[in-house]
């Protein structure tokens, strides 16, 4: 793979790796840089260690690494999901945050937390989130359907409507649990997104979700390119746009749901990452998909690292950081758009 566009992939990979290294060893709590490296090396190599290093190895291997893995693969999944949805909807502003998939996952998680189902098993919140995301995506298809067909615009409108409705229902769940401080604060914190107390179980779900659904996209880059055209043009070039949109939207839903189920509400990543990646590697999906995965991974890990180096009493949540990082980018896009209008 050659060319200036493809070289951006290497830069994004470098960013994702650098962010991961920072995340692993440069944080406010001990062990610091040197001890973390030592512990990580011992943990990875399985070497017998003394008690102090064993504690460090536990912190790195059982607390930091699973958190890093969830952030890395979750960010990659959200980046890819955003790129797929923007092609499927032929709209650069489409994302799981806009069409209700993320809201459905958040609603499912909020229900599980507010009813204290999470006491039953570590897997209940992720399962409820997955169920919520799938249910909302299915409803989007049902509402958007006209006979046996649906349009990208119809899907988008149905998604925006359900996003608002499900968001309101989630707010209701929060207010409904206000008299129970523990429960309501747990729901609120979860909705704001965060990677505290992530275990290897969460990491396994996130990695499996990413690998499974990303594999389903293999060989579909050109199909995604064609879907950015009108349905009649895409049809005339030898694909079935209706079937392709339906299939790809389920894949994007799967990528989003298995991530949000383990991270809570993470906004802007799926929206901003494909935009940024497209600026560097162009809109062709054979480069855009890997670029979005690497940039998404780097961005979410970097955002979580910012959460981890700020004072603990600030309680800075991951979803807040991604929103703060994402909003200025859209102001940048606005400036760019205005310049474009002046040139026309």
């Amino acid at each position: 793979m050659n060319g200036p566009r493809a070289r951006h992939l290497l830069r994004f990979a470098g960013f994702a790796i650098a962010a991961a290294l920072l995340h692993l060893v440069v944080v406010r709590e001990e062990p610091g840089l040197v001890r973390s490296w030592l512990a990580a090396w011992r943990w990875l190599s399985g070497t017998e260690v003394d008690a102090d290093v064993a504690i460090d190895a536990y912190v790195v291997g059982q607390i930091r690494l699973p958190r890093l893995v969830v952030a890395w693969f979750g960010g990659a999944a959200l980046g890819v999901a955003g790129a797929v949805m923007q092609a499927v909807f032929r709209n650069p502003l489409a994302s799981p945050d806009i069409i209700g998939t993320s809201a459905g996952a958040a609603f499912g998680g909020a229900i599980a937390l507010s009813l204290d189902w999470v006491a039953l098993s570590l897997l209940v919140a992720p399962a409820a989130s997955l169920g919520g995301a799938l249910l909302v995506t299915w409803l989007v298809f049902v509402l958007a359907r006209a006979g046996t067909r649906f349009s990208a615009t119809g899907l988008l409108l149905a998604g925006v409507a359900l996003n608002t409705l499900v968001g309101a229902l989630t707010s209701f769940v929060v207010t409904f649990t206000f008299d129970n401080y523990t429960s309501s604060s747990r729901v609120l914190f979860w909705l704001m997104g965060g990677l505290d107390l992530r275990t290897w179980t969460h990491a396994a779900i996130t990695v499996t979700g990413f690998v499974l659904f990303a594999a389903l996209l293999a060989g579909r880059a050109r199909q995604l390119d064609l879907l950015t055209l009108r349905d009649d043009s895409a049809h005339s070039l030898g694909i079935d746009p209706q079937r392709a949109r339906r299939w790809l939207l389920w894949v994007a839903c799967g990528l989003t749901a298995t991530t949000v189920a383990n991270t809570g509400g993470i906004v802007f990543v799926a929206l901003v990452v494909p935009h940024l990646a497209r600026l560097c590697v162009g809109p062709a999906h054979h480069l855009l998909l890997p670029a979005s995965a690497l940039l998404g991974a780097g961005l979410l890990v970097f955002s979580d690292w910012l959460c981890r180096i700020t004072p603990a009493d600030m309680n800075l949540r991951l979803g807040v950081v991604t929103a703060v990082l994402g909003a200025p980018y859209f102001l940048f896009l606005l400036r760019r758009h205005r310049r474009g209008e002046e040139l026309t």
Binding site: R90, D225, T228, R230, D232, S233, P283
Partner: peptide, 11 residues
């Protein structure tokens, strides 16, 4: 088509 649009910056 009558309106050959593409919202993305393909060349």
């Amino acid at each position: 088509p009558q309106d050959p649009d593409c919202p993305f910056e393909f060349t």
